[in-house]
Design a binder for these strands. Structure first.
Lengths: 205, 205
DNA sequence: AAGAACAGAGAACAGTTGTTGACTGAATGG
DNA sequence: CCATTCAGTCAACAACTGTTCTCTGTTCTT
């Protein structure tokens, strides 16, 4: 069932994506709650009224952006935690992966960091939901590691949330780092991750 | 030199504060970048044009709000870290202190969490500056503790930043916690702090 | 007591905003 | 092939925005 979309739905999807892209670009230097409907349609090259064919409101568009922005992250999880090697190697690889993601999708990262506690409730909730799902996946990965032997489910989730929050924090810091200052931020993040990993190792003492 | 302010400056300071209060209230459900000048003056009960007697723009008002919001935090530092007792006691007291602060100044906390990565650059920078200063103070406090013997200045600052970021994170989480869910958030924060403290203890192994 | 300083009010400006209803033309499905 | 669906356009709406300039009344200074 390879459900080839009709020409109509293809074009609709294209302008929908154009709206999302235009919005993401405009959100480089403002927050979602100040993003105007007309502003977006102007940047996307369509009439203001056509906006309603795709979204009820800009908040609606924001929720769609959340899925798109955090969807590109899910592939990262497995790669990060499944990787072999010693502690320092794995940490370095994790930080590099985060840095690479920030370099590749800066607008997405900025959007998530900005709207995580932003002024639009449905968007905040959507981000929280995704990050929760994220933490759940990390917990599952952690549970499979030998270092987690004897850990309670609750404590594993606690650690997973700490890792996820630290990841988001690091990504945001990298984004706002001055040109050339990314190395320092990455070094800081590595040392912080090492401290957390040491804490993990001696948790059951 | 107790520099008693003239009646004029007193009244000016009052309406200035009224503007700040009105803005803070309006920022409960929107971000600074969407806050209108007229909206604020309307809520403060003055004419729109009088706004310019106090601030150049809403971004300017935002910067003033940062100082006011984070100023109420500086007293907290000494109290938190100087406190005696074992590790778990000190952690519990720290989290309680954060929770108390969030309950007392929810609007301030919300503002900082929201605008830390928000759409207004000068405000972002002001917050970053204050949090940096904050981390510096925490580092100084940490340096005075016996557990920090043998630590490099760099690593102390690394730990201080981790603590400060975790504090902000916890405050934001408490703010968005559902009624009655604050206890769970506090418990999570305590366990995470304990893990970081254990990592700290074994850092030099 | 006279004059300067100045916080705030008021009116007006050109633009902008979200949302409506009726309309067009191409893709769709029977 | 004909009727229907529907993405996108267009015009118009009342309401709102930041900023300017002019004016008023009180406070400050000398």
């Amino acid at each position: 069932m390879s459900h080839t979309l009709g020409k109509r739905q293809v074009q609709k999807e294209q302008t929908r994506q154009a709206l999302l892209d235009a919005a993401l670009a405009l959100l480089a230097d403002q927050s979602l709650s100040s993003l105007g409907l007309r502003e977006v349609t102007r940047a996307a090259g369509i009439a203001p009224t056509a906006f309603y064919r795709h979204f009820h409101s800009t908040a609606d568009l924001g929720v769609a952006l959340v899925d798109q922005a955090l969807g590109s992250l899910h592939e990262m999880i497995g790669t990060t935690l499944t990787a072999p090697g010693g502690m320092d190697e794995r940490i370095a690889r994790s930080v590099d992966l985060i840095a690479g993601h920030v370099r590749r999708y800066p607008a997405h990262v900025r959007f998530v960091a900005r709207e995580r506690h932003g002024g639009v409730q449905p968007v905040r909730e959507a981000i929280a939901r995704q990050l929760d799902r994220f933490a759940g996946e990390v917990r599952t990965e952690l549970a499979g590691q030998p270092e987690s032997h004897g850990w309670s489910e609750e404590d594993l989730l606690m650690l997973a949330r700490l890792y996820v929050d630290h990841m988001v924090m690091t990504a945001a810091a990298l984004l706002e780092a001055p040109p050339g200052g990314a190395g320092a931020v990455a070094g800081l993040a590595r040392r912080q991750m090492r401290l957390m990993s040491i804490g993990r190792r001696h948790w059951l003492d």
